[in-house]
């Protein structure tokens, strides 16, 4: 069975375990995101019926996104016309004195929320993605973080949920039975 893509339709039975990409988690936490309601609904459905896999890469991306939203939210609160900016590493360092204390509680909350769900499991701690991710990057033309997501999902889950198909666009793998659901 080859890798397949499906748009998620509520109520259907999902092959478990499920690997949830960071963007779905982020939309659950951030109410201003366009897919906030949709991703929260999907997450609710998955929490009811599936075992959910996450990795440290998911946490890292969620933390970055939360930091970035809080940074822009604060900037907008001070100047409603402030341009949205991407939180780069230099920008984070420049603003770390106020941003990190400002965001610390939220970072802790999102982490504790994810780990509080009994159906959420971390990928096995002895997993060594560095041994296989570079090959996946090359063979599938993926960015590092996407290659990690795909590799871990392929190894430990039967389904992968993501908001954005373009992250894995053009991906074909006749040896993979992973079902990629687009939220």
């Amino acid at each position: 069975m080859a890798l397949t893509y499906q748009r998620y339709v509520g109520g259907e039975s999902i092959p478990s375990p499920v690997y949830i990409d960071a963007n779905v988690w982020v939309s659950h936490f951030v109410s201003a995101r366009p897919k906030h309601g949709t991703s929260s609904t999907v997450l609710g459905d998955l929490l009811i019926q599936c075992e959910i896999m996450v990795s440290t890469v998911v946490f890292s991306e969620v933390w970055w996104a939360v930091l970035e939203h809080i940074y822009n939210e604060v900037q907008r609160s001070q100047n409603p016309k402030a341009q949205l900016v991407r939180l780069s590493l230099p920008l984070l360092k420049t603003n770390s004195e106020w941003l990190l204390p400002e965001a610390k509680q939220k970072l802790r909350e999102v982490s504790e929320t994810i780990t509080s769900f009994t159906s959420v499991k971390m990928v096995p701690p002895n997993t060594e993605p560095m041994k296989f991710v570079p090959e996946v990057m090359v063979s599938h033309q993926l960015a590092p973080s996407d290659a990690v997501h795909f590799s871990l999902a392929n190894s430990f889950a039967k389904s992968l949920f993501t908001e954005d198909q373009k992250d894995f666009d053009g991906l074909t793998d006749p040896t993979s039975s992973l079902v990629v659901y687009i939220v």
Binding site: F29, S31, R33, S40, H69, L89, K106, P144
Partner: peptide, 20 residues
């Protein structure tokens, strides 16, 4: 936990990666 961060609308997902 749902919507606990208000955030801003309009940030693209490419910003999720540390080095992207």
């Amino acid at each position: 936990s749902m919507g606990t961060v208000r955030g801003v609308d309009g940030l693209s997902d490419r910003s999720l990666g540390e080095y992207e």
